[in-house]
Simulated assay, not measured.
Amino acid sequence: MKRLGLLLCLVLGLTGCGGRNEFDIGITIPAGSTEAVVYADEEISPKKRSFTVSAGEGLGDTAVYLQPVEVQEENAYDEGVYLTPGMPVKIEAEKGGWFRIGVSVQNPTEEDMEVFLHVEDVKLRIE
């Protein structure tokens, strides 16, 4: 049974399956997008009262936002947290709540652009 769980972790590409979960979340910025914030399709849930996020592939300086999906507490999550490549930041959020994570990135090109956020200490579910 233990081998099956390890194999599942490897197949899904997850790291730290035994305890701390880490994920690379892709966000597609549509061609010609001028949206203020573009959110990932996946949803995350902090395992504690905060989680760590860092810039992944294709992502420069930006602001990161949380969009509540299922929360118990009435908190405002409308302010972004500034993110610089190479400098992970902690984001406070309701433990056990579910959120979509987004970035403030525009794409003036004629092709979709894929950027990634690396998140730690969260659970992940696909919308």
Rank of each mutant, 00 (worst) to 15 (best):
V38I: 13
S50Y: 04
L8Q: 13
W98G: 02
V105L: 09
L7W: 02
L12Q: 04
F99G: 02
V81I: 07
V103D: 06
R125Q: 07
N107C: 09
E114D: 09
A76D: 14
I27N: 08
F51M: 05
G86N: 11
E74F: 13
K95L: 10
A55N: 01
G19E: 02
T62H: 03
S45K: 02
G32L: 04
P88K: 00
R100C: 10
E79D: 07
I101Q: 10
K47F: 07
G26E: 15
V11Y: 09
L7N: 11
G26D: 06
Y82W: 10
L6N: 05
T52D: 00
M87W: 05
I25A: 07
S50E: 11
P88H: 00
E57Q: 10
K2T: 10
G19C: 10
C17H: 00
A31P: 00
P68H: 13
G32C: 00
R3E: 14
V38N: 09
V53P: 00
D78H: 00
M1C: 07
G97P: 07
G16L: 01
E43K: 09
F116D: 01
E73Y: 08
A31R: 00
E114L: 15
D61R: 11
E92C: 04
L14G: 04
E43T: 06
Q106W: 07
E70G: 02
S104P: 09
G18M: 07
V89P: 05
E43V: 14
G96S: 09
A40H: 06
E111T: 15
V69E: 15
I44V: 15
L124V: 14
G56C: 02
L7H: 03
K47Q: 10
Y82L: 10
V122T: 13
E74D: 14
F116S: 08
D78R: 03
I126V: 15
V71S: 07
G56E: 00
T15L: 03
D61M: 09
D121A: 15
R49Y: 08
E94G: 05
A55R: 01
V64C: 14
T109R: 06
F51D: 04
E73W: 04
N75P: 00
R49G: 08
